[in-house]
């Protein structure tokens, strides 16, 4: 059975970049949403194996999504993909239960390394 993957970013380019950087031949089923509100709605209605999450977004931002997810346990694996890459921000998302942090721009190598680290590949 393929793994359901959710990509959440307000930028179309960023969503495409994440999708294109996902490893070839990985059995996945990709869905995309464009802000934190949509992400929460989607997560409440669907089972998701891994979510790639941007931080700076309208409606509900990435931090907001992490907070709700921490309370409701909607998805286990969250990888934050962010332009805001300062150490303080990394600490903050990790404390909110994010699995890993990828500095934008995302690349196949960066993604592969993280997925391997967590045994997802």
């Amino acid at each position: 059975m393929s793994i359901p993957v959710l990509i959440c970013d307000d930028s179309a380019l960023a969503r495409k970049q994440v999708k294109k950087s996902l490893p070839q031949g990985w059995d996945i089923d990709v869905s995309m949403v464009t802000n934190g509100r949509e992400a929460i709605d989607y997560l409440r209605a669907n089972r998701v194996g891994i979510m790639f999450l941007d931080l700076t977004m309208p409606e509900i931002d990435g931090i907001g999504v992490l907070e709700i997810n921490k309370a409701e346990k909607l998805v286990d694996f969250v990888v934050v993909v962010s332009a805001d890459i300062q150490p303080d921000m990394k600490k903050k998302v990790e404390s909110l239960g994010a699995l890993a942090f990828i500095n934008k721009p995302v690349s196949t190598d960066k993604l592969n390394n993280i997925l391997k680290d967590y045994g997802l590949l």
Binding site: T56, A83, D84, I85, Q86, K104
Partner: peptide, 17 residues
């Protein structure tokens, strides 16, 4: 526009760091 906005966001993030 979306592409430029995203590039600028990423560049700004790097610059801030």
């Amino acid at each position: 526009r979306d592409c430029l906005q995203e590039l600028i966001n990423v560049a700004m993030g790097q610059a801030s760091d």
